[in-house]
Design a binder for these strands. Structure first.
Lengths: 263, 263
DNA sequence: CGAGTGTTTGACTGTTCTCAAATGTCGTGG
DNA sequence: CCACGACATTTGAGAACAGTCAAACACTCG
């Protein structure tokens, strides 16, 4: 099983090694800011406990007292809340390199849960250790802070997405975001097909739409020739029109350099 | 004009004095974390340029290069985005004491704008100065970081609000949030009536609903005996039922102590 | 008084939801 | 190899919720 073959990232045993989580996180950080060698080394020195989380299980549960944060080494995860009426809403999706609950660093409890959408390899790090690093290196603190601010910018964008756009536009927008984030560091222009392990129900809960309706929306998007979605693969048939359909502007992702794929 | 008379905060000329912005921000910070005297003094030493912004004008425009952040001394503001279709979505409302664009501290540009919903008194502070303070005092950095994380938690909650709840629930939820935030530091149990200077159209753009529909929702909420909304005043008639109607849980606001008003 | 803005209401339209059932896919075990 | 269950996708039909358009009304300010 190599779900990320399309991204040319090989995992296998390597993923379980100690240094990998912080390395992969370091790569992510370098995509949003300059990271000094010292800071990179400091990150690599973090004590990481790597855990294999099966699909559909919580990585961090909402309301839990949090003394750790985690990096995603492999897999897809999502942060979500459940309403009193029992409906689920995702507020972000996370992929390899992301730190889904760095948001909890200075909160006692996390108000949202993070659940594994596929099998995930997760590296846990103690808050105390991260804070110690931040005190020693203000530049590292700044990069991590920036990371959480970009996360927040994604939340804001999702508020607008779910609040003001119609269903097709919402889905197109989400596809654009995930496509850029999945492709980013390598950013292959030709890379218009990648693993998409999410079910329609999960997509629905990200877009604030019923799963039945998502199905019809996907049908329409296929008919429009925007995307192809089958066998757990998302193929983008027409990037420019998808961007237009999704009213997408990548500014809110705050990549260090504008991706080679102009939009 | 004393829009905050209900909160026993008097402004008038005092508001324009130099130290006030950081003092009011300090009070806000103390509601979410312990702030040492040194840090409080450091905050007070910030160079603040106080500006009077008329209603309906941008305090910070989306996309602008940002070298400053601001504190709201007086008034209501909202962070918002406008979609390609010309629809506006608010992602948060801000009141006296808030720092609407502290989110921009480590971003080059802000992806959302912040606009004044009433006349606002705003104190601008240079990013560079805040960063200098943070380097000197990691504890102050932690408090400010925490502040931005709580902001992000509010965005997440809004995603869920707009994505999964019906219109009445959305509005009730928003009223609960704003009510707690407006009342917080003093937290008067009897304080169930306060200034609400927002128009129905603005409320609509916060809840992802048309203004016509908001009008009907308010009518229903009045009929249900939950709230009273007139003359720019929001009166809460039945707090417990409003909390139930809004499926509201205040955890995501991360107040230092649970408000005296149990919910 | 008139202009401008915000609120309220009605009638109609349209998107999306819910319920329900059929179909497709995959892995397990006989 | 097939039967089976579990899960995901697809489709239909009717209902509910919310949007649009349009007009009347209320209020404030100069």
């Amino acid at each position: 099983m190599q779900p990320f073959a399309a991204l040319n990232i090989s995992f296998s045993e390597e993923a379980l090694m100690r240094r990998v989580p912080s390395e992969i996180f370091g790569r992510k950080l370098r995509s949003i800011a300059h990271v000094s060698e010292q800071d990179e080394e400091a990150l690599a020195s973090l004590g990481v406990r790597t855990v294999d989380v099966p699909a559909a299980r919580d990585i961090v549960s909402a309301g839990a007292r949090c003394s750790h944060s985690c990096f995603l080494v492999e897999g897809f995860a999502g942060s979500y809340q459940v309403t009193a009426a029992g409906k689920r809403q995702f507020s972000a999706f996370y992929i390899a390199g992301d730190a889904p609950d760095l948001q909890s660093l200075y909160l006692e409890t996390l108000d949202s849960g993070v659940c594994a959408l596929t099998r995930c390899v997760v590296g846990y790090v103690e808050h105390a250790e991260i804070k110690r690093l931040c005190e020693k290196s203000p530049t590292l603190a700044a990069v991590l802070w920036r990371y959480t601010l970009i996360d927040a910018a994604i939340f804001r964008e999702w508020v607008t997405n779910v609040g003001q756009r119609d269903a097709v536009t919402r889905v197109a927008h989400l596809f654009c975001e995930m496509s850029l984030r999945l492709r980013y560091p390598r950013n292959l222009l030709e890379q218009m097909r990648f693993n998409w392990p999410l079910t329609q129900a999960e997509l629905a809960d990200a877009c604030g739409v019923s799963s039945v309706h998502i199905n019809r929306v996907l049908k329409e998007m296929r008919w429009l020739g925007l995307v192809e979605l089958s066998d757990g693969q998302l193929g983008i048939k027409d990037w420019n029109r998808l961007v237009a359909a999704g009213e997408f502007n990548a500014d809110y992702l705050h990549f260090k350099r504008t991706p080679a794929v102009r939009i």
